[in-house]
Design a binder for these strands. Sequence first.
DNA 1: ATAGGGTTAGGG
DNA 2: CCCTAACCCTAT
Length: 368
Amino acid sequence: MPPLAAADAFLVLEYLAGNRRIPQPVFSALLAALPPVTPHNSPRLRKGFALRALDLALLDSGAEASVLFRNARAVLAEPDLAPCFPDHLALCDDVDALKRLVDAEWASLPASALEAAADRIVGAGAPHTWANADQDTRRKLHLLVGESMEREILGKLGQDRSTDPQDDKVANAPSTSGANEADRAHQDDGAHLDRGNGNADHVQEDCANRPQEPAERTTDARLPEKPVTSATIKGKGIATSSHVTGQFAPDNNKSHPVKCSKPSLMERNPTACAYEWDESGDSDNERPPRKRQLPTYERKPRPPRPPPPFPHRTRKKWTDLEEKTLIEGVEKYGKGNWTDIKMAYPTVFAERSTVDLKDKVRNMERFH
DNA sequence: ATAGGGTTAGGG
DNA sequence: CCCTAACCCTAT
């Protein structure tokens, strides 16, 4: 497979950098694998990098608040990153408040080009895009969104699919922006977006929920003009914060942060063991004629397994910040959408599971 | 993934 | 010892 074009790599990375649900190790790996991108013309990309560095500093659940705070301050003070943050972050003097501000910064990231394109195709901009699409573009749009979504959009448009699009696009010739641009963003991988109309809903919702920041408050003057590669990033904050927190080894492909991701498949699983086929009994004719020689591993007698090291987590009282954030989350995302709520405030709820959130709300309802 | 019943730590 | 809140278990 040919390498991804630089422009496409940009679209992918710009979207993922600002998507907090993409864990840092995954993002780092992609960054290393894709062609270098230039962040200087994308506020979202720049800020995404900066916020990721800040998250790394703040999400070290093992560390004490004072340490977290110190690490976060170090990130905020990085000359290359500082311009990405609004001033009040650096002025913040306590870790909980800082976490809130960081969550707010994440929430206010501008939409990515991909999201904007999706929005033009199936979201708020869809009617306009579809109305202005010529026959050819319509066909592509149809492929992208699928049958039922197309009907829905055209329904909103107040026209039937059978209507010849040419008819209603009298004065639309010059409007190339919507569909074509969107199409550009999608043409390489249309199938992905096409796959589920449910996704389309998400995109819409994402866009709708994101209070667009009036204007980027950041000064770009001092941001690197040169392309950013994983190596560049490593030298600029992400790795810096990592060497402060000690969570990341310099090689972002090998070492993963303590929290926030499953162990890599490439890593040895200490609890795994190898079983061997007993060749004698069966004559499975699917097997190649020559016996496959499995490397002979001795089944090491496993030491008596000390059953789960943490039978019970140590009880942690809910803080004010957690409670308030939870209430806000329930108002915003609805009771029951615990995953969404947790994802929306990953720093605040770093040490709470979705079940914890649910239980807490139940408790608050029961006794208050 | 979520709801709801059950268990337990720990303060009064 | 009781009660509340945090946490666990299990069915759906």
